[in-house]
Simulated assay, not measured.
Amino acid sequence: MSRDTLKTLFHPFETGVVPAPAEGERVLFLGAEAGYRLPEEFAGSIAAVQALKPLYRGLEAAKAAVTPVVEGEDYDAALILCGKHKGENEDRIAEALKRVKVGGLIVVAGGKEDGIQSLRKRVNQLGWGGDSLPKYHGIAFWFGRPEEVADVIAKFSKKPVRVEGRFDAAPGMFSHERVDAGSELLASRLPDDFKGHAADFGAGWGYLSVMLAEKSPGLKGIDLFEADHHALEAARANLKANCPNVPTRFFWQDLTSEETRDKYDLIVMNPPFHETQAADPALGVAMIKAAARALKIGGKLMLVANRGMPYEPVMAETFKEWGETCRNARFKVLWGKR
């Protein structure tokens, strides 16, 4: 998400096309990110919502009032900053409809890469009126919250997806419709005799943790670390449903900038490799370095990555021993020993 889209969101207020919230009015900001500047006439108080820990920390640093999940009702207005997941964008509109007073203003903004044109078209088909304004390579559109919204809320709210008949995930989470093929490859190489303390870095909705717990029933416990609050809550439910007797802890954490409290005998991970549309090995490199710091002496990292991701140099630099366990046409499994 670029800062341009943030400017797009506030542009209707800057130009006076849309009246700015007055003092005492409460504004819900869904998908909020730091870096926005309130127009001079914007006197309302903003309640920001951001489930991704790095972006949440940015808002905290900017002294914004922010929570990872939506809280409260009867807001006077809502702002929605779109992301790249269609289902998540629609769900934010559904949340705004639930939380904003009848007649309250809802402003939505996004770029071409966020599917803003199709989202605007879909909302326009509802016949709610409103208008739009293009600016800064994006589009902002707005409408008043109608009185009858139950059907639209039901249609736009994201639905849990059942994966392999036993996992729950949702739109916006990594590989929410099926088990990721890379994670499956790593799962096939997990130990069946592990008895120590493990961690799952970038745990998503918990697949690798469940696989490790099932393959090594003697493990002492597993800690799940995930930057997406929604995915972490899904992981909590999936671990409880699939391996309720395994000692587990859950940490909403940005591993690239927040250290773990404990050290581990084993860390498994399928590291993220992009923040935007383009692949970026820097995220995976940061996760590998974080894993090395979180391992006990003699502890082991097992990770899966796309074959083209250049993680070998950081593995050689960071670990006492390292190697490749296997690879297929798309993925490779690497290991490192501290």
Rank of each mutant, 00 (worst) to 15 (best):
E164F: 00
D265S: 12
V108E: 01
L334H: 09
I267Y: 04
P68Y: 06
G298Q: 09
K86N: 08
L126G: 01
W142E: 11
E258S: 11
V107E: 05
S209A: 15
R178K: 15
V66A: 13
I267F: 03
I46N: 15
P54S: 06
H11Q: 10
S175D: 09
A48M: 04
Q125H: 10
T260N: 09
V314I: 12
K289S: 04
L186A: 07
L52Q: 15
F225C: 13
E214C: 02
P12M: 07
A278N: 12
W142Q: 05
V69T: 15
V108G: 00
G204V: 07
E259A: 15
V285Y: 02
K289H: 03
L295K: 09
A62P: 10
Q253P: 02
V268M: 08
T318D: 00
T318H: 02
D193I: 00
R122E: 13
R166I: 09
V163L: 12
G58I: 12
G16E: 01
E177W: 01
A198Q: 09
L301K: 08
P217F: 05
V246S: 03
A65D: 14
A154Y: 00
A65N: 15
K101Y: 01
E226D: 15
D168H: 12
L6C: 06
A241F: 10
I46L: 15
R37F: 04
K159H: 11
P271W: 07
F174N: 07
G336Q: 08
E40A: 14
N242R: 14
E88V: 03
K155Y: 02
A34M: 02
Q117N: 12
